[in-house]
Computed example of a mutant assay.
Amino acid sequence: MYQANEHRYDQMIYNRIGDSGLKLSAISLGLWNNFGSVDAYDNQKAIIHQAFDLGITSYDLANNYGPEPGSAEENFGRIMATDMHAYRDEMVITSKAGYVMWPGPYGDWGSRKSIIASADQSLKRTGLDYFDIFYSHRADPATNPEETALALDQLVRSGKTLYVGISNYDGAQTQAIANIFKDLHTPFIIHQPRYNLLNREVENDVLPVLLREHKSAISFSSLCQGLLTTKYLNGIPQDSRAKKATIPFLHPAQVEQTLQTIRALNEVAKQRNQSLAQMALAWNLRQPAIASVLIGASRPEQVVDNVAALKNLDFTTDELNQIDQILAQQAPIDWDKK
């Protein structure tokens, strides 16, 4: 029987989400990869145990995480039922709806039917009574944002989630739905954008809106699918995301495009006595709007290494200038390459 480390809260940092009463661990565990039906279940348990023992209280899911879609929620639900149920009130567990989950016209996007049906399915798969945060995973261009907002508001009022969030919305979309939530008095508190050293668009778009509206962000792809680690410095490993056909978000060409930049950033990290991954996470957390950074892990040791980023979150002006100069020399990256 799993027993949590009694010192788990000693070193972790907890940041308030905007002006809400909720705090997130500065490092959150994302279950997008390595928690599906094709992955070793015992390793999944070991990763979650390690994360919780280090004070990570925030666990991020979505309806279609796997593969197979839904299997990450099912596996997480098994782990909660057998190992973690005693700690439920110490955990912030989140899920999302908006990307393709089941066939037909109601299996994705942001209609009331899709959002509410998906939330019900996710609760059933995880075996939970409620989520702490439920997200609209992407803005729906064919659905009035008021309908999506009302669906999320209904989830709160029916006790299926405590708070709501959005993900992958641009600045204008974020402002529009924030205004609707404000009128509804919905506890909208957080945005989950892609943000890392190589993807900075939200700095001038989404993050200013969040600060103005007193909301926070939790960044996904914080290590850019592993690019912002030392994994690719000496070639592309066979077991890496760039080699996996089931993960279409990183391509060998993108590794080649960024190799010089990654090597230069790694030298800055060495000067800071950090790994490149640790520096990348710390760099995200320098943003006032970012309450937490999502990490993925294929083994428990990666969680330990990433949490060690919190030992050095401060950057000198010279370090930040050096990083900006390195990034300015990076040619545009073809992120659409598949």
Results as ranks from 00 to 15, higher is better:
L265A: 09
L265S: 06
N266H: 13
N266K: 09
E267L: 15
E267I: 10
E267F: 12
V268Y: 11
V268Q: 06
V268R: 07
V268L: 10
A269K: 10
A269D: 13
K270F: 07
Q271V: 11
R272N: 09
R272I: 08
N273W: 03
N273D: 15
Q274P: 04
Q274I: 10
Q274K: 04
S275Y: 07
S275N: 03
L276K: 03
L276H: 02
L276P: 09
Q278N: 06
M279Q: 11
M279T: 05
A280V: 00
L281A: 04
L281W: 04
L281N: 01
L281Y: 02
A282G: 05
A282E: 03
A282S: 13
A282W: 01
A282I: 05
W283M: 06
N284E: 09
N284S: 12
L285N: 01
L285F: 02
L285G: 05
R286Q: 14
R286T: 08
Q287L: 04
Q287G: 03
Q287V: 02
P288E: 05
P288A: 03
A289D: 08
A289K: 00
I290R: 01
A291L: 05
V293L: 03
V293R: 02
L294M: 15
I295N: 11
I295M: 03
G296Y: 12
G296L: 13
A297T: 10
S298R: 15
S298Q: 14
E301A: 15
Q302K: 07
Q302D: 05
V304I: 14
D305T: 04
D305C: 01
D305G: 02
N306H: 15
N306P: 01
N306K: 01
A308E: 15
A308K: 12
A309Y: 01
A309I: 11
A309Q: 04
L310T: 06
N312A: 14
N312T: 13
L313W: 06
L313Y: 01
D314G: 06
D314H: 15
D314E: 15
D314M: 14
T316I: 10
T316W: 15
T317S: 14
T317N: 12
T317F: 03
D318V: 01
D318H: 08
D318G: 02
E319T: 08
L320C: 13
L320D: 12
L320I: 10
